[in-house]
């Protein structure tokens, strides 16, 4: 038997720190404490995703969460996803308005062009818009020609940048999928923060070929798709998990400095009449505590950056 080639037992990156150059190794509780405005303990970052899944999606190189599932034409899943943009988000908007919650919407460019009324309503409320790519069938991945990827980013950002007064500073790749070049391409295009990496509870600095970029702590665990759709937990368990996440961060902040409580939502899931109450109760639990700062992604990033 020939065994494995010799390089399988060679470890070129076996040294202090990470095995790549995108960011440095850093220990969360050993960093300088962060102070949020007004001495808040927790920055509450609520982030609904407004997505459009084309009914003829190719799912290349993989199907993103929420993709069409049956043979073409999958009217069932197409329209249920669209329910989020048509009904769910408007229901959630009323809840957020009532509770005075600042919101950051991750939006596919296709949602902005297909439903300008929705974009307007977000902007009118002072919500921040994070560019969430062209649509859910334009993933970023290694193997996509760099020129195509650059065009996808440019097309996406153009849609938002022609809206008067709207400044897009954050990026979320569809399904958080990246090529090796994605961070360089979005930084070159003027993006200041990215929400794809899930290795931290706080913002941290990344390196790109076009200068620094901030990684923002946008989770896949504290996410209605993960908890309700993938894990099949009940709405009450969803509420409990949001509250438990918050309570832990809130306690930790007493000794370790400000924390970020980020919540990733999908209006086609949480915007359902029977589910919205669980979200409202969880948010009520948070905003009723002292020292909770409801903020947008840019506000959190700016406050963090000013202390680095």
């Amino acid at each position: 038997m020939t065994g494995m080639p010799p390089e399988y037992l060679q470890y070129r990156a076996r040294k202090y720190g990470m095995d790549h150059d995108r960011y440095d190794w850093s220990i969360l509780p050993r960093r300088k404490k962060v102070e949020w405005p007004g001495g808040a303990r927790v920055a509450l970052w609520v982030m609904p995703a407004l997505e459009w899944f084309p009914i003829d999606m190719k799912g290349k190189p993989f199907k993103p969460p929420g993709a069409m599932q049956t043979s073409y034409p999958d009217l069932r899943h197409y329209t249920l996803r669209d329910y989020g943009n048509r009904v769910g988000i408007w229901r959630m908007m009323r809840s957020f308005d009532r509770m005075g919650i600042r919101v950051t919407a991750a939006m596919n460019a296709a949602v902005a062009t297909r439903y300008p009324a929705l974009l307007e309503a977000c902007v009118a409320r002072g919500w921040e818009i994070v560019a969430n790519g062209q649509d859910m069938d334009h993933l970023h991945y290694e193997g996509l020609p760099v020129e195509d990827e650059r065009r996808q980013v440019a097309t996406t950002l153009e849609v938002f940048r022609r809206v008067p007064g709207l400044k897009v500073r954050g990026w979320l790749s569809p399904a958080k999928s990246q090529s090796k070049a994605t961070l360089d391409i979005v930084a070159e295009a003027g993006i200041e923060y990215c929400c794809d990496w899930v290795n931290d509870d706080m913002p941290y600095a990344m390196r790109t070929a076009h200068g620094p970029l901030v990684a923002m702590p946008h989770p896949i665990d504290i996410d209605d798709h993960t908890i309700l759709v993938q894990n099949h937990h009940s709405d009450d368990e969803f509420r409990e998990q949001l509250c438990d996440q918050f309570d832990c961060l809130y306690d930790e902040a007493a000794t370790q400095g400000g924390r970020v409580m980020a919540i990733s939502l999908h209006p086609w899931i949480t915007g359902q009449p029977y589910r919205i109450g669980a979200l409202e109760k969880a948010l009520q639990h948070m905003v009723s505590r002292k020292g909770v700062w409801s903020a947008t992604g840019s506000e959190i990033m700016d406050a963090w950056k000013a202390q680095q």
Binding site: P61, K176, Q178, D196, N199
Partner: peptide, 14 residues
């Protein structure tokens, strides 16, 4: 996922 599996890698790095 194809390299780089950003979510897979960063989830473990957490």
């Amino acid at each position: 996922k194809p390299h780089p599996d950003v979510v897979g890698y960063s989830y473990r790095d957490y």
